[in-house]
Design a binder for these strands. Structure first.
Length: 566
RNA sequence: GGCUCCAUGGUCAAGCGGUUAAGACAUCGCCCUUUCACGGCGGUAACACGGGUUCAAAUCCCGUUGGAGUCACCA
């Protein structure tokens, strides 16, 4: 009995030695951060990035899930910055994160960066580095209970035992008999500290090697995992917590009810399980999302998105190319909830935020990022905009990414609107679907503007006839052209050209006996189209000429005629 | 390698013991069309393999194989 008391006493002494300045107890914080008063079923979720400022599609993917889960039932979605690793810090990252999320229409209710915005922010601070005294209070408590201890092992020593474990083919790590600092006496620890040796604080794991936990994941269902037996690091030598420990404290104190995170975290659930247990916290619900995958050209297989290897999947990239945020959201939602696509098609006019998002409908296996699908969605969504919305979207994008064109192309608003109407098929029976993203749109319509600088014919859309035919057709076209012709009269002239040079003006006749002709009226139109626009695919030619004007059209054709003669 | 998760067409996916195995993207063909598109119709194409359980298996169980994730004083 004396022995036990003595031991407890030593833990208390150790705790005071380690954390002489910690005055608050866990109870203080429990009271300071009470349970949130929220409607029933409302979830509290969060996004918790490290402040590198780099975000890729995968981050948006799970942030969107978090946001939907919180906001569909009046919950809270907040931003916490996990800046415990000094090396990862990048200036301005928080602003970047908030701005990127805002670009995609994902708003936080509170958190980092919202200190002066009138948000409640009652559960802050939201930067982990500003929370060290909180972490210390809890660690001190653990030390006092004998559930944590200082470890003085150096990196070299750790490396040495790891190698030995490897050689012996046993589990690597700091646990059991390998956890040498576990049983240091108070006096030894005290001597080490007085000698100025650096140390970390480790958990004294209570797990057993053949223990098993059954964990219920909101997405994956029941998962059997081995108990944690590692004496994991709680506080690094600079006194800052590791991710695991900070996660337990923060999500408990910030009263998070559901943690949606990437599947790469599933393997550390046993650690979190023990941590919550040892701290006396109730675990939040967890949903481990399937990772968004990418086809790897090198290996010919799938792998998770990597920020180093896939810069083209960074959210910045999508902004730079001018993908409309709404389209991105629709795409991600179709990946996130398999029934979304159907719902969206059924109720195209409903706000996508009204979709009953469901965690249980989330995919189990990793979806391959599919650019074709994204583009298809972009085409569809963009074709539903008005020309004015499109104008504003392009204008805003250009202001940031194409400042030159922003000045020149948008000088004549009516002209630009005319082009957009033409390309979007506004006023036609059906909308066209040519537009995918801003940069692509600019490339599509460039011939209306960069007329002088650009060469006539783009390589991928070359003429399919020889130059003498092209010359004949173009010359005849210019000769007979009358800017006052209406669409029908204009097209009849194309037919005349067809007849004159051995092309079929009647499609049905052509189909019956194609060998009798050089081609058909469609080929005539193609030649003229390519000459004027440099492209084989454009909207109605007559309309194009009436937006660009006769002069520009003629100048363009003459230029091609000049090239053909050389 | 240990542990874990996953496995339906090229891609995303419905499917929860009995289906002609949906749908979307991509692809191909036809139709519509005075040119480009849009649109309409149709085609090709899948339950990884092997054992069970069952009257009946894509569906449940066990193995195999394959893919992915993770094993830090990074998150």
């Amino acid at each position: 009995m004396d022995n036990i008391n003595n031991k407890d006493n030593n833990f208390q002494k150790l705790a005071d030695l380690l954390f002489p300045d910690v005055t608050h107890t866990p109870d203080y914080y429990e009271e300071k951060y009470p349970y949130r008063k929220l409607p029933s079923k409302a979830e509290v979720t969060r996004m918790a990035p490290s402040p590198t400022g780099f975000m890729h599609l995968g981050n948006l993917y799970s942030a969107l899930a978090d946001e939907r889960i919180a906001h569909k039932k009046g919950g809270i979605f907040y931003l916490r910055i996990e800046d415990t690793d000094e090396k990862r810090k990048v200036d301005g990252a928080v602003e970047t994160i908030i701005n990127v999320m805002r670009y995609f229409n994902i708003e936080f209710d509170e958190g980092a960066g919202f200190e002066d915005t009138g948000a409640d922010n009652a559960y802050g601070p939201y930067f982990q580095r500003q929370r060290v005294e909180i972490y210390h209070a809890y660690v001190k408590e653990l030390v006092k209970k004998g559930l944590a201890y200082p470890c003085f092992c150096t990196e070299e020593e750790l490396e040495k035992t790891r190698k030995k474990q490897d050689a012996d083919k046993v589990l690597t790590g700091y646990y059991g008999q390998y956890a040498t600092c576990r049983n240091l006496s108070f006096e030894e620890a005290e001597a080490n500290i007085k000698a100025g040796r650096e140390y970390v604080i480790r958990l004294r794991s209570q797990g057993s090697p053949d223990g098993e936990i059954i964990f219920k994941d909101s997405i994956k269902g029941e998962v059997k995992l081995p108990e944690n037996i590692h004496d994991i690091v709680l506080l690094k030598k600079d006194g800052v917590p590791t991710y695991h420990f900070a996660h337990a404290i923060d999500d408990h104190l910030m009263r998070t009810t559901m943690v949606i995170r990437g599947g790469e975290w599933l393997a550390s659930v046993p650690i979190h399980y023990e941590l919550f247990n040892v701290l006396g916290f109730k675990m939040p619900a967890y949903g481990h999302t399937a990772l968004l995958m990418k086809f790897d050209e090198e290996t010919g297989g799938k792998r998770k998105l990597s920020k180093r290897k896939d810069p083209e999947l960074s959210l910045d990239y999508y902004r730079k190319d001018g993908y409309h945020p709404y389209c991105m959201k629709v795409y991600l939602l179709t990946l996130l909830n398999s029934n979304f696509e159907e719902w969206h098609e059924k109720f195209p006019d409903k706000d996508i935020n009204e979709f009953p998002f469901s965690v249980s409908k989330m995919s189990q296996s990793g979806a391959l990022f599919d650019k074709d699908k994204l583009h298809n969605i972009c085409k569809n969504e963009l074709s539903a905009l008005t020309e004015y919305e499109m104008y504003d979207f392009l204008h805003n994008w250009a202001r940031e990414h194409e400042p030159e064109k922003c000045k020149t192309w948008f000088k004549d608003k009516e002209k630009m609107l005319g082009i957009l109407r033409l390309y979007m098929g506004i006023g036609m029976k059906r909308r066209r679907k040519d537009f995918i993203y801003a940069r692509q749109v600019f490339a599509l319509i460039s011939y209306f503007f960069d007329f002088e600088g650009e060469e006539g014919v783009q390589e991928k859309d070359p003429f399919r006839f020889n130059s003498s035919i092209i010359n004949e057709v173009l010359n005849e076209y210019l000769k007979t052209y009358n800017h006052n012709d209406d669409n029908t009269a204009w097209f009849n002239k194309l037919k005349d050209i067809a007849d004159k040079y051995g092309f079929a003006s009647d499609m049905k006749a052509y189909k019956k006996e194609p060998e009798k002709y050089k081609g058909n009226v469609s080929d005539i139109a193609e030649i003229i189209r390519i000459a004027i626009t440099g492209r084989a695919n454009t909207p109605d030619l007559w309309a194009i000429v009436h937006v660009m004007g006769q002069e520009q059209m003629e100048s363009r054709i003459n230029k091609v005629l000049g090239q053909q003669e050389n």
